[in-house]
Design a binder for these strands. Structure first.
Lengths: 122, 122
DNA sequence: CAGAATCCCACCCGATACTG
DNA sequence: CAGTATCGGGTGGGATTCTG
């Protein structure tokens, strides 16, 4: 077998990994960094609506998980670049599939919701 | 074009969809239901660690989003079955890719964390 | 069997302001 | 520029108990 992990099992580490994927900003960071290294401010402007604090948190966690590399350049003014690691790059495809699905089916989902809500109210 | 949605934009509906996909239990429900219809208690026992309340919440939301169908049989004792809708089935593949990735790379992630934490402490 | 009701808390996230 | 510090709120999730 390739793996002993099973998301359906309690305390399986893969669940923690799933969690990370499923947090609010992490997938957007991947989307932002898929084109190559980006400076902090650039990441921030790419991902609309994210605050510096939360973005930093997200990037730190992804760095800790070995998915993002943080590079500091000793310059004035300071420059810090973020990029996906080799491991992070392998996650790009699966994540992209989900994102594509989300973008492609958002309308249907919203319609289904209206349907459901209307049936509840009516 | 196929879609006007872009996850990087604020208030884009696809973000909401991503959120849903990324909540704690929804992906596990998909994994549990991928084999076909299942009764509530069966879903519950398949997804280790989920409480009835949270499972109900999750199933309701997925039902509202048109991803899961809930069927009630008028029997004693009560029987309720859950299954993926056609729309839900189309999400199965992308989700499976992520799950497979999570299960396959959980070990590496954990190792990266230990590395990172050690470097912080040391 | 399939849940509903209730209570509760951790934590995730956001707004704002400040700094090397 | 690239963050940190601080405070606060909302909510997703959990434990427990009860019911048609």
């Amino acid at each position: 077998m390739d793996t002993d992990f099973d998301v359906l099992k309690v305390d399986c580490p893969s669940r923690v990994v799933l969690q990370r994927i499923g947090d609010k900003w992490a997938p957007l960071v991947f989307q932002a960094l898929k084109g190559g290294p980006l400076r902090f401010s650039r990441v921030r402007s790419t991902i609309q609506g994210v605050t510096p604090k939360v973005l930093t948190q997200t990037l730190r966690t992804l760095e800790r998980d070995g998915l993002v590399r943080r590079t500091v350049f000793a310059e004035i003014p300071p420059r810090v670049e973020y990029e996906l690691t080799p491991l992070g790059l392998t996650l790009l495809a699966p994540l992209d599939a989900v994102r594509t699905w989300a973008e492609g089916n958002a309308a249907q989902i919203l319609a289904a919701r209206d349907d459901y809500d209307e049936r509840q109210a009516g």
